[in-house]
Each structure stands twice: as C-alpha cells, then as structure tokens.
C-alpha cells in the first residue's frame, strides 16, 4: 500500500477540515487551523492508499447523475414499501450478474455505491478483474424483469462515466 503523494493529499485535507468545521458548526480561523492540524494528524496516523486514477469532474453531468439517483431513490423507496405492504405470495427476487463495461475500480465503486443506495438492489459480491457486480434485486419475477434491471444498471454506469471522465484515455478491456 503506497501512501498518497503530498499533492494528492490536499483534497483529503480539505475534506477532513470541512467536516471538522461543520462539526463545530461555526466558522472561525481557530476552527479552520485546528481542523487542518487534526487532518494532518489523521493522515499521518491513518495513511490512505493511493487512488491511482486521475479523473476530472464534469459538473453538469454530475448534476444529471445526482438528479437521476435522487429520482431513483424516491421511486424505489415507494416500490419497496409497496412490496412490504402487498398481500399475497412471497415476493421473489434474483441474484443477477451485471458486467460493466469499465475496468476502473473507481467507477466500479461508484456504481456499486449508487446501486446499493437505491432500494431494491443490494450488492452481494464484486469481481473487480472482470468488472462484474452481483446484485440481489428485490421483486424480480421473470427474465424480462432481470433484463430491465440490467439495462438500468448499465445506464447508471453510463451516467457515472460521463460525470467522472478519465484524464487520459480510459483503460478498457479489449
């Protein structure tokens, strides 16, 4: 596990300091300086592994992604609640393998995180070398429902890759 290069530590320090200032709830120079000090101590005591990929953020695509996930969150929350209340036979589900196009660990992580956030899908297993997510999907009744979910997951991946494009050409498996 290689340590983060000093230049790469800056965003981490900024984030930790922000959390520190938010925890205090008030803005002051003392809070800012103590926050930076605490972040430096945290990074020295608990070093993070380096994220090797350089990625940019496209603000507009990111907003589109957030809007999509937020809508999904509401729609599927209602759906899971409906399944919880609906009488009748036991709800069926499926464990589906979704093979993503990307081989990037960062994209894989973000897709997994976004999928898990949305009700109705839980990540059971991840195979990073092949970029495959194994997802438990609630309320799948047949093969058609399974394909619908796969298409949704791939669309999500598409949105995430648009929002976080690689600085250089993305490594793709041939």
């Amino acid at each position: 596990m290689s340590r983060l290069a000093p230049r790469r530590q800056l965003p981490v320090i900024a984030w930790l300091t922000l959390v520190w200032v938010l925890l205090w709830g008030t803005w002051s120079w003392a809070n800012l300086l103590s926050g930076i000090l605490v972040s430096l101590i945290v990074l020295a005591v608990l070093p993070l592994p380096a994220v090797t990929e350089g990625r940019r953020v496209r603000p507009l695509a990111l907003l589109r992604l957030i809007a999509y996930v937020a809508r999904d969150l509401v729609v599927s929350s209602v759906e899971v609640s409906r399944l919880a209340l609906s009488p009748g036979p036991r709800v069926t589900s499926a464990v589906l393998a979704v093979r993503l196009q990307t081989r990037s660990d960062l994209i894989l992580t973000v897709v997994a995180e976004a999928l898990s956030l949305v009700p109705g899908s839980v990540i059971v297993e991840i195979d990073s070398p092949t970029g495959t997510l194994y997802v438990h999907v609630l309320g799948v009744r047949d093969a058609e429902g399974a394909e619908r979910f796969r298409a949704r997951a791939l669309h999500l991946e598409h949105l995430i890759r648009r929002a976080l494009p690689a600085m250089t050409r993305e490594k793709e498996a041939a």
């Binding site: 929350s77 899971v80 919880a84 709800v91 009700p119 109705g120 899908s121 438990h136 609630l138």
Partner: peptide
C-alpha cells in the same frame, strides 16, 4: 413492516437499509 414481512435475510436488507435512508 418490510423487515418483518420479507422472507429472507437478503430481502430484509432492502427494507432495513433503503426506505429508511430516504426516511
């Protein structure tokens, strides 16, 4: 309610981690 009514652990995880997030 979902936690009680869903049939197995995996299904219950949906109820336990999700509507409650939005909630």
């Amino acid at each position: 309610v979902g936690l009680v009514r869903f049939p197995d652990v995996l299904s219950r995880m949906h109820a336990a981690t999700k509507p409650q997030t939005l909630g």
